[in-house]
């Protein structure tokens, strides 16, 4: 990736990188709580897939997970933790009919996260080939960091599917995928890619907002509630980079949410 000359700053790159490492540690410290939440969500969904409705008991179990999330204080440097939950997964497939109820929203979320990872991976590839022109280093860091967070999210959702005995989603079987991939292929500059990423981040934030109202399990609701702000933050930074007002709406709506019926059979 080509880069520009760097400005002189009172704070060094090393200090800023150290700040980033601190933030990484902060991020890792939040993950164990979310993992516990997801484990309980999975357990509830497993009950459902076995034909035993969780009912109020399931809801209460999920709420217990919510409390655990708030209380989680331990830290972890296991960056592959989300992958661990998928190692024993059944073979991946993308048959939409496989997933029902909350699991369909989970599958949708995994697919949407995979689409974001695909888009950012494509952007890095295009940058490496020089297709996008000169890419500022800060933009490269943004892409890599956002991509990692989306991978974490996809791994988390796939962990739920796996533990519920369902196939994981390793690609992006969505009705919007073809258009997004086509748009990425046509991107010729950093702003082109940033606009595409902004649309995806906005769609993800709205999809999780939709999920908070349409998932029934408390653990699933809370997981969506803790991922939604992160996608919204990605969008704010992208708006800023594009020279657009970074927080254009006082409320995040659902009109651009990707609905469960966008999940497609292969």
């Amino acid at each position: 990736m080509s880069t520009d000359k760097r400005p002189e700053m009172q704070i060094s790159e090393r200090e800023l990188a150290a700040m980033t490492r601190d933030l990484d540690e902060l991020h890792e410290s939040t993950f164990p709580g979310v993992r516990k939440l997801l484990d309980e969500f999975s357990a509830n969904l497993a009950h459902l897939t076995r034909g035993r409705a969780a009912g109020r008991r399931g809801f209460l179990m999920g709420v217990g997970g919510v409390s655990a999330l708030g209380l989680a204080a331990c830290s972890s440097n296991d960056t592959g933790s989300s992958n661990k939950t998928t190692t024993a997964a059944p073979p991946a497939t993308t048959a939409a009919a496989t997933y029902e109820g909350d699991l369909k929203v989970v599958a949708l979320a995994a697919a949407l996260e995979n689409l974001a990872v695909t888009a950012y991976t494509g952007a890095l590839d295009a940058a490496g080939k020089g297709t996008l022109g000169t890419v500022p280093p800060a933009i490269g860091v943004f892409v890599q960091t956002a991509m990692k967070q989306h991978k974490d999210h996809a791994g988390a959702w796939n962990g739920v599917l796996s533990k519920a005995g369902k196939p994981t989603i390793t690609d992006a079987p969505l009705s919007i995928t073809a258009d997004q991939v086509k748009a990425l292929g046509a991107a010729k500059s950093v702003p082109d890619v940033a606009k595409l990423a902004l649309d995806l981040e906005n769609a993800a934030a709205q999809t999780y907002t939709f999920a908070t109202a349409n998932v029934t399990d408390a653990g699933g609701i809370m997981t969506a509630a803790t991922i939604q702000p992160v996608e919204a933050m990605h969008a704010a930074i992208l708006n800023f980079v594009l020279g657009q007002y970074p927080v254009p709406d006082a409320f995040i709506g659902v009109d651009k949410a990707v609905k469960p019926d966008a999940l497609m059979p292969k």
Partner: peptide, 27 residues
């Protein structure tokens, strides 16, 4: 607005979203 992205320090690309999951311990 827009920022001169070429002059931004590398870490400016990630400092805005430190957590993959938004915490709730200070709620």
């Amino acid at each position: 607005l827009p920022p001169d992205a070429a002059k931004l320090p590398d870490a400016a690309g990630s400092v805005g979203f430190p957590d993959a999951y938004y915490p709730t311990d200070k709620a």
